[in-house]
Amino acid sequence: MNKYEHDAGLSLNLSRQLADLGSCGLFLPQILLRIRPSLKQLGNVMRQLYFVGTRSMIIILTSGFFIGLVIALQGYNTLVQFGASESLGAVVALSLFRELGPVLTALLFTGRAGTSIAAEIGLMKATEQLDALELMAIDPVERIVLPRFIAAVIAVPLLTAMFNLLAVTGAYLFAVEWVNLDPGLFWGRMISAVDLGPDYLSGVYKSVVFGIVIALVSVFQGYNAEPTGRGVAVATTQTVIVSSILILILDFILTALLI
């Protein structure tokens, strides 16, 4: 077991991880250079958007709703001690829009869609599908990697918005139905506390960056997987590890920059 974990690349070999990160970054221009304004590419992106976007909705919406309920419950119990329970809407919205929405959505998306992208591309490599495309003079990066990358980049900010909306709805329902706060007060306090630029848009920027990171890490891990069953497993695990760490580090950096 110990030996397997070591082999699977779960150990923190720092220099190798850094080198991986470097070649991962170099993969980005290679992908972007293949963008063409063609209907064929658009069709491929839409197909992938179904797999990474539409099919991630259930987990994102459910998680969002319950996260909203939990923050509202926790926030209310604290606020009510200071007689500030009418600020619940503001507390919930600020923590969601600025931090929890983008970060949790990104982490959930990594688990739901990032891993499946990495596993799928890795498996295509292991079963010679990428070789076959190359031999048919079809560029696998353009045909396989690019649509998945673009679809993930588009999906993350949209899923984040859905997550936030459902979480606010959950919190609203808790406040209005459970602890009988005034609905107008909840919503009004929220609106006056949340500024479009520094609070809401900063969260949107974060989600865009997270989307790029997850998309890049997933396709990179899949495309560079060792073409064996174990290689695919390693690629999937690495996708979760590398994406999650990068998301949390970047969240700190972006927060510092955007504040």
């Binding site: 909705m57 859905m162 809401y200």
Partner: peptide, 16 residues
């Protein structure tokens, strides 16, 4: 749906 959520929050839940 995603865009609708994005815009709804931007216009209805924030101080524009």
């Amino acid at each position: 749906l995603g865009l609708a959520a994005l815009l709804f929050l931007a216009f209805e839940a924030t101080d524009v």
